[in-house]
Amino acid sequence: MILNINGLTYSYEDSERKVLNSVDLQIKEGDVMCILGPNGAGKTTLLNCMAGLLEYSEGNIEICERPQKEMSAKEIAGVIAYVPQTHTPSFDYSVMEFVMMGRAHNTSIFGRPGAEDEECCMNILRSMEIEHLADRSYINISGGERQQVLIARALAQEPEIVLFDEPTSHLDYGNQQRVLKKIMELSRAGIAAVITTHDPDHALLLGDKVAILDEDGHMTSGETDLITEERLRDIYNTDLRIMYVEELGRKVCLVPGIK
């Protein structure tokens, strides 16, 4: 068990509303877990709690059988990598410098990464076929390339689980598929993934675990059969269809016409 969450409850300061209400979640090696939920339901909050970025009031999280609250930021970063939504940083670093930052949890406070770390990062860039970006500036590459670089940085942490916060939201169609394929590839290598997404079809496409977070902070988790027309209609408050498409050999989630 990589991640074991029990009774996690979180509410923002000065607010009665529970963004997360007694959430339970277990993630094993190689699991791909999609978290669905309406806007503002606390999907990102849940990821932030997992990564130890937020202090929660109730419940506990165990990372590799150890209580998260006893772990330092470095120890957590050795297990959990976080791929944030793509953004433009204030300062311009080269892609290589950026990816090397994934080695921080192996580096001392007065240290800096060495030749071995550079070798490791270069191998990751090569395996993702983006080594040509190594010396480009992170600010000047495209959104799709930035997403790839963020994933490369996460892999440089050599994590057991990668958290993706809406990894497909700013990407064009082709880049969305590339990211989802990469997630499947990681899963086959034994690296688990937790993904928040607004597209239920992505959960069907990845076809593994699903968790649905509703507006009251309650979570239901299970397999893809959890995704039913009725449930989705409830959380998104809109009409949609789930059907099996013979040609694709899978279930899809689509909206009926809006005319």
């Binding site: 932030n48 990564a51 130890g52 970025l53 330092s72 930021a73 470095k74 957590i76 970063a77 050795g78 959990i80 990598a81 976080y82 944030p84 940083p89 204030s90 300062f91 670093y93 410098e97 930052m101 994934g102 921080a104 949890h105 406070i109 942490q157």
Partner: peptide, 16 residues
């Protein structure tokens, strides 16, 4: 360099 990515990103990379 790591701190310059912002607080939460730095922390998720293992920075105190």
């Amino acid at each position: 360099n790591i701190l310059s990515l912002g607080e939460s990103e730095a922390r998720s990379l293992g920075a105190d």
